[in-house]
């Protein structure tokens, strides 16, 4: 039974929106954009094209490995290591009462902190914007960055708050009933992005 239903869903499911190769290309492109923007927005006389000023902060779960990948690609392209951190937003969510408590994930900032630096928040999917708002609230308690930007792998629309991404891997028009399912090798064993119709799992 299980075998045949899996086979059936494989046949009927549309191909992934992004395959593993696509995800790698998108990460490379966003890494290049981060290098460019860091250089153009760097304070005068900054060393390393402004990269020393940059901190990539991932929002768990999947933003955290994305931030590490972006940092690794930036280092591969420029030879400069970039600071990486993660900020867990669970304790800052505005929907705890209705969605219930969940296990916390790691919050770790680089030793140099975020004060006066350019923080780029990294997340997998930008949807309502509420996660980003919670992350901004968390950052406010952690320090005072010079500026905060946002990079996401997929922007699927349907914002409920005045928030937009500075770097977008892929814009995907979706309906509210659909789900965007991002899988990353570090968490799920495989890289791919799929759009599922309501009810699909």
């Amino acid at each position: 039974m299980t075998m045949s239903s899996e086979l059936f869903s494989d046949l009927s499911a549309p191909p992934p929106l992004l395959t593993g190769d696509d995800v790698a290309r998108v990460v490379d492109r966003v890494a290049h954009q981060l290098i460019e923007r860091a250089a153009s927005s760097a304070p005068d006389g900054a060393a390393d094209g402004g990269l020393a000023d940059l901190v990539l902060v991932g929002i768990p779960t999947r933003g955290a490995p994305l931030a590490r990948r972006l940092a690794a690609r930036i280092e591969a392209f420029t030879g400069t290591a970039v600071d990486v951190g993660t900020v867990d937003i669970t304790l800052y969510r505005d929907d705890l009462r209705t969605r219930g408590v969940r296990a916390l994930e790691e919050t770790r900032l680089p030793a140099a902190g975020i004060d006066g630096r350019l923080v780029v928040l990294i997340d997998d999917v930008l949807f309502s914007g509420r996660s980003v708002r919670a992350a901004l609230d968390a950052l406010r308690d952690l320090g005072r960055p010079r500026a905060v930007q946002l990079a996401v792998l997929v922007d699927r629309g349907h914002r409920e708050l005045p928030i937009r991404a500075d770097y977008v891997g892929k814009n995907v028009p979706t309906s509210r009933a659909q789900q965007v399912r991002v899988k990353l090798a570090e968490v799920d064993g495989v890289d791919e992005v799929r759009v599922l119709n309501g009810g699909d799992r």
């Binding site: 867990d88 304790l91 800052y92 916390l104 790691e106 919050t107 609230d137 308690d141």
Partner: peptide, 21 residues
């Protein structure tokens, strides 16, 4: 215990030791 460890890590070295939860 794990939740406590994450809270400790999240609050370590902060000036504002307060969460809005």
């Amino acid at each position: 215990l794990d939740t406590a460890a994450q809270i400790e890590a999240a609050l370590a070295g902060r000036e504002v030791k307060k969460l809005p939860t």
